[in-house]
Design a binder for these strands. Sequence first.
DNA 1: CGGGCGCATTGACCTAGATCAAGAAGCTGT
DNA 2: ACAGCTTCTTGATCTAGGTCAATGCGCCCG
Lengths: 249, 249
Amino acid sequence: MATAALTPELASMEMFRSSLIRDSGSSETAERLCAVGRFSSLSRGSMLWQNPDSDRLVYIASGAVKLIGQRAGPEDSDAHANERSARGSQILAFHFPGEIVSVLHQAERDVRLAALCDTDLVIFWTDQFLDVAEGDPSVIRAVLTRSLEALQRSRARMMQLGHKSARQRVADFLVTLAQRIGTMDGEACDITLPMSRRDIAESLGLTLETVSRQFADLRAEGLVATSGRSGVRLPDLYALAREAGQRFS
Amino acid sequence: MATAALTPELASMEMFRSSLIRDSGSSETAERLCAVGRFSSLSRGSMLWQNPDSDRLVYIASGAVKLIGQRAGPEDSDAHANERSARGSQILAFHFPGEIVSVLHQAERDVRLAALCDTDLVIFWTDQFLDVAEGDPSVIRAVLTRSLEALQRSRARMMQLGHKSARQRVADFLVTLAQRIGTMDGEACDITLPMSRRDIAESLGLTLETVSRQFADLRAEGLVATSGRSGVRLPDLYALAREAGQRFS
DNA sequence: CGGGCGCATTGACCTAGATCAAGAAGCTGT
DNA sequence: ACAGCTTCTTGATCTAGGTCAATGCGCCCG
């Protein structure tokens, strides 16, 4: 009743519920799903420890996360497993509010979710989620559609990693991100990067130095402007997209 | 009634039906799905022309296919669009009998399915498939599970493309393929490669020459033996897996 | 069985990007 | 405002793998 904001937990659950109903699920199913979902709040930099025994579905309510794949060195022994020991880890995807991430348990590999900034999310045990959702085909179908979209993005990234130059990767990264979280400002487009240069590098399969150099080049050519660590402005999205795409030879 | 084999079409439909029922779908749903599926037979090297206006699901009954992603040069004009003009195309995945491939229509990109050898398959229009399957949640769930598996494989490939050396990629490719289509022979494992060196290269984001060189090196070290173009024997799968995986430094 | 074509192998060289090594901004907290 | 971090930028080398080019071999077909 107070004028103060809802608790993050209630707000997150409400977001999830209404996103389901928008996908034409019945509100009854939504209620039951909310009942089996567990709310969680992550602060910047912390990771969601993944039980190695089961798959999860994670709904992002607010903030931003990265999905990290790490070749599972068998329990890197005692070494304080804080994030910085990330040698040779690969970022598989970034995810933003409203999206559902599927974190599959995968023998031999270690897949984790880490928060780029303070993040609220709702976690489901995949089997349980599907058991409940099975009563409502439209919900399962919605989840299927989302996972096919994720597959599509994943394939697009593969093409990027396969045959593109550093310059193209960085350009493509910026254009794609602009489409997902950018705000148009007349001709130009502004993005506030939630991730570090290192994150960008690891997601593109490059080194942080190379990413930095490509930013410098694009900046020199007037294709991007930066302000501070995280402010990026793309004065000509089309020109940049052209850089990203089919520059033969 | 004759002793002769079934027609490929009937055999393919029967495979599809029984794979569905194994996944606990009702046989009634299976019948209805078969009714909307269209059988098709591809000969070695030919491509499934993808209508650009809709997504498809393709069930592989026999043979082998590659899923190709090509940055869509706007209608490469008249140039006889036979397969060989594949400049800078990337192979997104290989698929084998029993698997369901989802081919999503993707603006700006051209995704196609090509047969590595003579192949029988059943094609569905995704929306129609799901409309029918919606009556039977366990079928939709099965499709979802398969697509999550595809996502998982896709992520694994991303890690490969991201941070691995040519040697590791080739080793990983062979080990992964061995697990999918290899036949054990005591300690060793035999594979008959359905794809060319060029295909391997394009799927790993390497050149055909580099792949060849890596084969030569691994051969020299006794980790693989080859016979003819397509015969491969892996005398020590574990040693090879170790090459593929976490060789730090 | 032998000719010919396409795939595979091998070699010589050369760039894009990794690696190593300083510095220069940015964002904290006091 | 300043100290002390972390993250970013820039520069100088080094090398894995790409590119170009020649040769060899498996496989199909007459």
